[in-house]
């Protein structure tokens, strides 16, 4: 039953993803890609659950490594996107 429920969620978010991205101006493609990339670091949430079991087994070490890697993706992703958008704003201002 959970599988059916989760597949429903998957289907709905796929449609939503398609809807959200339509008609975005070309200059925003790179920041949008970078911003979406930061969201894909959500895997950190799964990694946290694995790293915190306290079991000292392989799964925990894999989880700890995954937490570190996904954190790079999350923190780096959001900061780089913000820097891109800051630059974007300045350019727009200069043109006016």
């Amino acid at each position: 039953m959970t599988i059916v429920f989760l597949t429903f969620i998957l289907m709905l978010s796929v449609f939503l993803g398609f809807e959200l991205i339509n008609k975005v101006p070309a200059t925003l493609h790179t920041p949008l890609m970078s911003g979406a990339n930061a969201i894909s670091g959500i895997t950190v949430v799964g990694a946290i659950a694995l790293a915190g079991t306290g079991d000292q087994d392989l799964a925990q070490w894999l989880g700890a490594a995954a937490v570190a890697l996904a954190s790079i993706n999350v923190v780096g992703g959001y900061l780089v996107t913000d820097r891109m958008l800051a630059m974007f704003k300045k350019k727009e201002g200069a043109r006016k």
Binding site: L10, S13, G17, L20, L32, A36, S40
Partner: peptide
């Protein structure tokens, strides 16, 4: 994990269309 499924498929779908 629900949030991984939702956020992951959001990025997957928006990434493909982008």
């Amino acid at each position: 994990n629900n949030i991984l499924i939702v956020a992951g498929s959001l990025v997957g779908a928006s990434g493909i269309i982008l």
